[in-house]
Nucleic acid binder design. Structure first.
Lengths: 346, 346
DNA sequence: AGTGATGTGGGTAACGTTTTCCAAATGTTT
DNA sequence: AAACATTTGGAAAACGTTACCCACATCACT
């Protein structure tokens, strides 16, 4: 009763069954040149009859594995899940299979995971918000077709897809300014690394905030708390801001969770949102959309980003030496109930 | 400037560099018998110097790939993410790399994904809440070591890890009964398939609910709405329950999202939670824990489940013909603010 | 009829490992 | 010293596929 699994059907079995050579079968499998329609049909039938499926391991040794690896720094982040949806949707009808590597928080784990994907001869890699050094990314991209998502700056080796974080920050500032706010503070993610300072979205958001403030003639109102993109960071940042001589009437948090933490601190200080202080977040996560919270937030179209990444990757797999491209998408502002005009009593 | 990636270092390079045979290197790599400490050291050094990493593709053709595939039906479900954490934590210091296949909702997509993982010669599979027919699961398990998570019932071919859903439901009923509730209703996920009716957690929860009601002498109070495990399903289910002749004083929703939908319907009916109706969910998701919601819910230790699954899988990879095991963990009830005693005014 | 282009099919050598031998060297017991 | 067991190392054959060739047949022009 414990039958030990029959040997797998191989290309040789198919060839024998169809009375052709293995080469012929291989050609049919890859839609390669040199197979007549008649033979194609014969082989297809043999494949169907035997239930043959090619071994990716064997394929990897010579050609492609039809596998695309995606690195996600954090599974619980719904924005990343959207990106993944976009990737799989775009690749849905192709022969490629997407595989995900989990648990890549930190530069070391990230390196391990990327190596693992390369070792498994994946045809292409999508790296979402990687933290590795840029030189390392270039190295990786030279070894295997790569698309980097969510990291600004261009590379000669890999394509990149980003959302315009500067614009996103500007949208928030503009929205708040239109509501009459002048003292608009920002809670940023503290960044030390030089390269990341230029390339990471958090840095771009802070930069965009500054520029937008200046553009609206609010240079003197710029007020920044530098913590981290976490709920605790938001709490701490808001606390700092509230203790300063001039209290902000609005806080632009660099991420939704940060906004949540900030709202906590605001409530603790006996102030109301948006009555006393307006709060805006970034990412338009499920949290922001959730009724009781209803947080004004910047929406990045994750699916769109993922779809673009997949498209670029497939293009590059097809033509490895083509010029690299940088796709930059535009975010939109989703206004909800945490932001209001400054004179609500007016 | 566009250097075309140097050829990968292979086992042959290492062998040459260490002045030994490729066999020797292979032995060292796999900690196999037949390599002296001296040679071991020599080879290790060569590997380090050359930065050699074995090709999983080539390995897959003969031996293991040191890859474990995990199938998740839904990325956004935080409970599944916990399971995954447990798996990776357990496998953290082993040589195994975990890869995830996304987008496996529905029997067809699930089949495709599982085949893809088998084609890639993965050493083992963890299937989380699979919906495939049992015979299919047995077939899969015969082809590759498999552990099924979150599906009751035992198989001669695969190990399984489940949480005791019957107990979970009992915990909820007991809690509500202790609070003085008698008319405790349940919103279940409608199940048609015969086998799944016995094996799926949702069915077990409904069964556990019935049994617990009977055990508490509340057989006549059993009241079930049969919808789906979605927010909409919860809304609809609660609506149905509220329209019935006898209104329940408590609703046990089979999942947290269901509870959320139910609360929506309750609010719409002008009733309060827990003032008029107590509500309990299942899964103890982040949603339940979230302050403003604060939903009483059953907590399954996902990490623990994942860790057990990984342990069983590695054991089975080591010894394919050992007896199958069924691990059943016990859930706990997390009481929050959506359940209260029936005489609050007492 | 002779030449070249094109279409069709297959033989065979990779690809980078592991595995199964086998031989030699060394150690241990009579 | 002979016989046997154990350790150490390597040669060579898989594993299943693709890529690179070459052979043959057919066809269209000179």
């Amino acid at each position: 009763m414990h039958k030990p699994a029959p040997r797998r059907v191989t290309i040789v079995d198919v060839a024998r069954h169809a009375q052709v050579s293995t080469t012929a079968v291989s050609k049919v499998l890859r839609n390669a040149y040199g197979a007549s329609p008649a033979m194609r049909a014969k082989v297809q039938q043999a494949i169907a009859e035997l239930g043959y499926r090619p071994s990716a391991a064997a394929r990897g040794l010579r050609g492609q594995t039809y596998t695309i690896g995606v690195m996600l720094p954090e599974l619980r982040n719904l924005f990343f899940a959207d990106i993944l949806d976009g990737i799989t949707a775009q690749l849905g009808d192709s022969d490629y299979q997407v595989l995900l590597a989990p648990g890549c928080n930190g530069e070391k784990a990230e390196a391990r995971v990327i190596e693992a994907m390369i070792d498994r001869s994946m045809d292409g890699l999508v790296l979402i918000a990687p933290v590795s050094a840029k030189s390392r990314l270039n190295e990786i991209a030279r070894a295997v077709p790569t698309v980097v998502v969510g990291r600004h700056g261009s590379s000669p080796a890999y394509d990149s897809v980003t959302d315009d974080d500067i614009l996103g920050a500007a949208l928030v500032v503009e929205h708040l300014a239109e509501l009459g706010h002048r003292r608009i503070a920002h809670i940023e993610h503290h960044e030390t690394d030089r390269v990341r300072l230029a390339e990471m979205p958090n840095a771009q958001r802070a930069y965009g905030y500054r520029e937008a403030m200046i553009a609206h003639g609010l240079e003197s109102e710029i007020d920044i708390a530098s913590t981290t993109y976490t709920q605790a960071g938001g709490y701490l940042g808001a606390k700092q801001l509230l203790e300063r001589p001039v209290r902000p009437t609005a806080i632009f948090a660099g991420a939704d969770v940060v906004a949540l933490g900030a709202m906590e601190a605001i409530a603790e200080a006996g102030l109301s949102v948006p009555g006393d202080i307006s709060v805006a977040g970034y990412d338009n996560s499920a949290l922001a959309a959730f009724g009781p919270i209803s947080l004004t937030s910047v929406d990045q179209d994750g699916r769109q980003m993922g779809a673009n990444a997949a498209r670029l990757l497939v293009e590059r797999i097809g033509q490895r030496d083509r010029r690299t491209a940088q796709v930059k998408l535009s975010p939109t502002l989703v206004v909800r109930r945490t932001t209001a005009a400054i004179e609500t009593a007016g």
